[in-house]
Amino acid sequence: MSDFGHHIGMRSILVLTTVLLLFALTGCSTSVTISGTVPTPLVQELPIHVGVYYSEEFKNYEYKELPNESEPPMTHYQVALGTHNLSFFRNLMNAMFMQVTELDNPNLTDSQKNELDVVLIPEIARYDVLLPAISTLAYHAVSIEYHIKLTDLESTDIVNWKIIGYGKAEGSVLGGGEAVAEATMEAIRDGGARIATEVPAAIKSILAVKEKSDVLEEPSNEPPIKL
């Protein structure tokens, strides 16, 4: 082999070794896209008109797992769940309430104040994925912490529900990307199940209490009773 050929050969081996070492030391990043069915919940509609504000962060939520130097090299996931989560929530809200208006801004206009009863603002506060390499279990587990804020028409918070959706899925031999996607979908469904079964009933009782207190606070035309 000529000197040039030898030089090129050595250089190729060095580059290949560096790439392999980098791959081994940093692990790899896997992009996961969530897909699945979006079921229509079989729940009784609450006869109210609800405004729902989905923030841009909620609509485009993406989880990025950053490599940690103290951890052993492993796969780092990048999970884009915003789009699927949004379509799931739109379906959920339309099934839960008689009328739903999607808002561009959480601060209401005067005409919106005349039309709506309450405003709901869902947020994803946290997303976590637990890999079998860390948990030593056979499953990939995912949890999503939703915050569902209920405000009145003056944007005053009435209640903020913290709802955690949990999902898990068995990993395949060739990689955990599919398992993370399946576990995420299960977590969205689980969170949605809790929202669908608990939130309308809670809003109903809050509105009933509010209505009662409004009636009590209304000024009466009758003269006060003198004792």
Partner: peptide
Amino acid sequence: QNEFQDRLYPWFEPRT
């Protein structure tokens, strides 16, 4: 199971 759970969502999820 998936079709059944979708038809009756959210009543046959692990939680419910």
